Structure formats: structure tokens, C-alpha cells
Simulated assay, not measured.
Amino acid sequence: MRTLTDDEFTGAVATGNVLVEFGAQWCGPCRMLEPVLDELDRERGDLTVVKVDLDESPRTARDQRIMSAPTLQLYQDGQLVAQTVGARPKIHLIAWLEPHL
């Protein structure tokens, strides 16, 4: 799973289905969620999974109005189509994603 910088964010979500995790190293739930997101990234050919570190990319976090970690945002061709907050089991993430993919 690739970590995006402020400068990379807009280009990275511009095409296709992109799931973005906004998190931080100090966030326990974010660390728990990371292996699940890595699995999704490997298993789903119709989805690209990336992350944004809130401490390293504050401009993107501010622009996306991120208030909690982890926050997941799903983009389709540059448009935000869904958002959820908090760590969830893989089966719940898939159920959340499916209607949008």
C-alpha cells in the first residue's frame, strides 16, 4: 500500500476506484486496519488502496476535512463517493465498498 504526499493526492485519486486511508503512526486502530487494507489492495483488481499520513500530509487532511483517524474515503475517477470513520473487519469493509464498485 503506497503512502501519498500532499502533492500526489489529487493525481492518485483522479482515475479508477481508489480507497484512501487517512491515518497516523500513533493511531492504534489505523495500525490494526493496515493489514486488512493491504489484503484488499492485493486481492481486488478493481480497487487501488493508498494511505495518507495525517502528520506528513496535513494539507490534504485539511482539504478533505478529516477529523478522525482512521477515515476511509472511496474515490471513483476523482469524485468522492463514500466515506466512513473507524477501523472495521474486512467483511464489513467489503460490504461497505461493494455497492460502489
Rank of each mutant, 00 (worst) to 15 (best):
C27S: 09
W26S: 04
L47Q: 03
G28I: 11
E43I: 09
L72I: 03
G86V: 07
F22C: 04
L40P: 01
M1I: 06
E8H: 00
A12P: 10
V13N: 01
E98S: 12
T10K: 10
E43A: 14
V18W: 12
E39C: 08
I91D: 15
A61M: 07
E43G: 09
R31I: 00
F22I: 01
V52T: 04
A69E: 03
I91W: 02
A24T: 13
A87F: 08
A82W: 07
L72H: 03
F22Q: 04
Y75D: 11
P89S: 12
G45S: 07
A69R: 06
S68R: 12
P58S: 10
A69D: 01
Q64S: 05
L97A: 05
L97R: 05
M32D: 15
W96I: 02
G23D: 07
T5Y: 04
V20H: 03
G45M: 05
N17I: 04
V36E: 02
V13D: 06
S57N: 01
H100D: 00
R2E: 12
A12C: 05
Q79T: 14
V20T: 08
E34H: 14
L33F: 03
R31F: 11
Y75T: 01
D38V: 13
L97V: 07
V13L: 01
T5E: 11
Q79K: 15
Y75P: 11
L80F: 03
Q76Y: 00
C30M: 08
E8I: 00
L37Q: 01
A14M: 04
V20A: 03
T3K: 11
H92M: 15
A87Y: 04
R42I: 09
